[in-house]
Write a protein that binds this DNA or RNA. Structure first.
Length: 187
DNA sequence: CGCATTTGACCGGCGC
DNA sequence: GCGCCGGTCAAATGCG
C-alpha cells in the first residue's frame, strides 16, 4: 500500500484529503486512507487482513469469520465493471456527516451484521454525478468514522478546486480551508 | 409548501 | 434451493 493522504496525484476528485487538524472541528483525525479502485479491489475483498482495510471496514471481521461485509455484492460488482473508484477513509471524528464540499442526500440506513453501528448511505446530488458514500462508525472504536466513497465525481470538490488555486502550497496543506468540516452537510 | 430525512419493504447475490 | 445479508427504493413524516 502506497496510498497516503498526501498522494494528491490521485486523479479521482473523490480523493479529498482531509486536514489532519482542522481547527473548526478540532476533534478530528485522519486515521486511515484507503484508495480502493478496480485495480486493488481484489485485494480489498480478499479479507486477508494485511492492509489497513482490516482496520477499517473489516474491523468486525475478526468477530465473524465470514467476510460478508466486504464481499463483492451487487453494487461492488458494478464498481468492478468500471462504474468508478472506491475510496475509504477512517477518521476520528465526533460527527459522521462532514461537509466535504459536495451535497449529499441520505437515501438509506442499514444495520450491518459486522457492526453494532448502523451504516448510512448517501448519494451525491451536486452536479448530478453518480457518486455514493457509506458512512459508519468503527465497531471497535466509536470515535472513528469510516467513510467509503464509491464512484467518481464529475466535478471537483470546491475544496480541491480551492486547493488547485494555490500551487505553492504543500499539497496536503490544501483543503484545510475553507472550514472543511462544518458539521453535517445535509440538514 | 417544498425539501430532506427516516424507515420498512423489496431485490439481487452469495454461501451453505 | 433456501436463507442471509447488503444495498436501494419509495412512501411517510418532519422541519424550515
Amino acid at each position: 500500500m502506497d496510498f497516503s493522504p498526501t498522494d494528491h496525484s490521485n486523479p479521482n476528485p473523490n480523493s479529498i484529503f482531509f486536514p489532519e487538524n482542522p481547527d473548526p472541528m478540532a476533534d478530528f483525525e485522519l486515521s486511515d486512507y484507503l484508495m480502493l479502485d478496480a485495480a486493488v479491489f481484489e485485494d480489498d475483498t480478499s479479507e486477508k487482513g494485511t492492509g489497513v482495510t482490516n482496520e477499517s471496514e473489516t474491523s468486525g471481521a475478526s468477530a465473524t469469520p465470514k467476510h460478508s461485509n466486504i464481499r463483492c455484492k451487487s453494487g461492488e460488482k458494478k464498481n468492478m465493471l468500471g462504474l468508478g473508484h472506491r475510496t475509504a477513509f477512517r477518521m476520528k471524528s465526533e460527527i459522521e456527516a462532514m461537509d466535504d464540499g459536495y451535497k449529499w442526500r441520505k437515501y438509506g440506513k442499514k444495520t450491518v451484521k459486522n457492526s453494532p453501528n448502523p451504516r448510512n448511505y448517501y448519494k451525491c446530488v451536486s452536479g448530478g454525478c453518480n457518486v455514493k458514500k457509506r458512512i459508519e462508525r468503527d465497531r471497535d472504536d466509536k470515535s472513528y468514522v469510516i467513510t467509503t466513497y464509491e464512484g467518481v465525481h464529475n466535478r471537483e470538490s470546491p475544496y480541491t478546486s480551492y486547493c488547485s488555486q494555490m500551487p505553492l502550497m504543500a499539497p496536503n496543506a490544501c483543503i484545510s480551508q475553507p472550514s472543511p468540516f462544518s458539521s453535517s452537510s445535509s440538514t
